[in-house]
Simulated scan of single mutants.
Amino acid sequence: MSPLPATIPALVRTRVRAAVRRRARLTPEEAEARALLLRLCSLLLQYPDAELASARPELTAAVEALPPSPAAGHLAAHTTWLSAQEPEALERHYVEMFDLRRKSSLYLTYYLHGDTRRRGMALLTLNQRYRAAGWDTAAGELPDHLPVVLEFAALAGPGGGEAPLRQHRRGLELIHRALTDANSPYRHVLAALLTLLPPPTDADRAAVALLVAEGPPNEEVGLDPYGTYGQGEFAPPGTFVPPMPAPATQVPPAAPTATRTEGTR
């Protein structure tokens, strides 16, 4: 594309460039297909409990029925692996990939804000976005959990619904890289998701490299002011570290009873 003439006011040039970059509006059929892809990604990234394991034939059939696309190809690779595994092996692999490794945790605000006060505010903002759209998350799960974010994107549509995914694209890149390094088949689900988002910029790639090298920001403040969510306070993703035991309660000895001594008369 040839550069715009310098005589065009800066504001006009900016708007023209934005129009060039703007994605064409989806047809109803395309929007429906995109929502199905997002919903399948959400299901395939949930914990493979007995209910999900028993639904593997239906999930595989739904993926096979997708129109040909890069995302459909990635999901087919994942469901092929998923169908061949024993349920117990699926559960162990899921826990190892997503519960015991910080670089492939599914809690997106962690990658952007780490363990800082800003993360608590980001969780509040995300939850408010859901409520403003008339959608309430299931109790017991944080609003930045990737399957929750994907379900919201599928329900609310490509504009505001997918905004949290675009905002956390760098975290998604890091998860995909970590799963690829671990040779986990879950990398295919992240790869499918990334094909639905705008391509990464040079700044995105540099930020991901910095995350790999240094990790997210850190601050000893927990998640306040977000506080508790669901059944209790959220512990940042990673290997569980039990709290330090409380010191034993020291019971002071009882004070001696004052005894009145009468002198000898």
Results as ranks from 00 to 15, higher is better:
residue 109 T to K: 04
residue 146 L to I: 00
residue 183 N to V: 05
residue 145 H to S: 03
residue 225 P to G: 10
residue 19 A to V: 00
residue 260 R to T: 08
residue 196 L to T: 07
residue 173 E to S: 14
residue 99 D to W: 01
residue 205 R to C: 09
residue 84 A to C: 01
residue 114 G to T: 07
residue 59 L to D: 00
residue 256 P to S: 14
residue 111 Y to E: 08
residue 224 D to Q: 12
residue 35 A to W: 02
residue 195 T to V: 13
residue 218 N to I: 05
residue 2 S to F: 10
residue 58 E to Q: 13
residue 126 L to T: 01
residue 23 R to L: 12
residue 117 R to C: 07
residue 96 E to A: 15
residue 7 T to V: 11
residue 105 S to T: 11
residue 180 T to H: 10
residue 27 T to V: 06
residue 74 H to Y: 11
residue 134 G to R: 03
residue 66 L to F: 09
residue 50 A to Q: 06
residue 208 V to F: 06
residue 224 D to N: 04
residue 108 L to G: 01
residue 217 P to W: 11
residue 157 G to R: 07
residue 255 A to S: 14
residue 199 P to C: 04
residue 95 V to H: 00
residue 223 L to N: 08
residue 42 S to F: 01
residue 85 Q to L: 07
residue 141 E to W: 00
residue 245 P to D: 10
residue 99 D to S: 03
residue 27 T to A: 15
residue 183 N to Y: 06
residue 37 L to V: 08
residue 240 F to K: 06
residue 35 A to K: 00
residue 212 V to Y: 03
residue 58 E to Y: 01
residue 73 G to M: 03
residue 154 A to H: 00
residue 263 G to C: 09
residue 182 A to R: 10
residue 240 F to N: 02
residue 179 L to F: 03
residue 236 P to Y: 07
residue 218 N to K: 06
residue 75 L to W: 01
residue 3 P to V: 09
residue 212 V to K: 05
residue 235 A to G: 04
residue 82 L to T: 00
residue 169 R to I: 01
residue 180 T to I: 04
residue 37 L to E: 10
residue 92 R to T: 06
residue 106 L to K: 03
residue 117 R to A: 09
residue 44 L to C: 02
residue 20 V to R: 07
residue 19 A to T: 05
residue 221 V to P: 04
residue 234 F to Q: 08
residue 241 V to S: 11
residue 30 E to N: 08
residue 30 E to D: 11
residue 235 A to V: 08
residue 155 L to T: 03
residue 27 T to Q: 09
residue 12 V to E: 12
residue 127 N to Q: 13
residue 7 T to Y: 15
residue 227 G to A: 08
residue 34 R to A: 04
residue 262 E to Q: 07
residue 21 R to A: 15
residue 243 P to E: 14
residue 116 T to A: 15
residue 262 E to C: 06
residue 80 T to H: 07
residue 159 G to K: 03
residue 206 A to R: 13
residue 89 A to K: 07
residue 171 G to W: 09
residue 202 D to Q: 15
residue 67 P to W: 07
residue 53 A to H: 14
residue 201 T to H: 13
residue 251 V to M: 12
residue 124 L to S: 09
residue 194 L to V: 05
residue 213 A to F: 10
residue 73 G to F: 05
residue 72 A to E: 03
residue 10 A to S: 13
residue 216 P to L: 09
residue 241 V to K: 09
residue 116 T to N: 08
residue 121 M to H: 13
residue 213 A to S: 05
residue 185 P to C: 10
residue 121 M to S: 09
residue 80 T to P: 01
residue 122 A to N: 04
residue 45 L to V: 02
residue 19 A to S: 13
residue 130 Y to V: 01
residue 214 E to M: 09
residue 70 P to M: 08
residue 222 G to I: 02
residue 236 P to N: 07
residue 86 E to M: 12
residue 200 P to A: 14
residue 53 A to T: 10
residue 255 A to R: 11
residue 5 P to C: 15
residue 93 H to N: 13
residue 52 L to V: 02
residue 118 R to S: 14
residue 236 P to Q: 07
residue 210 L to G: 06
residue 239 T to N: 05
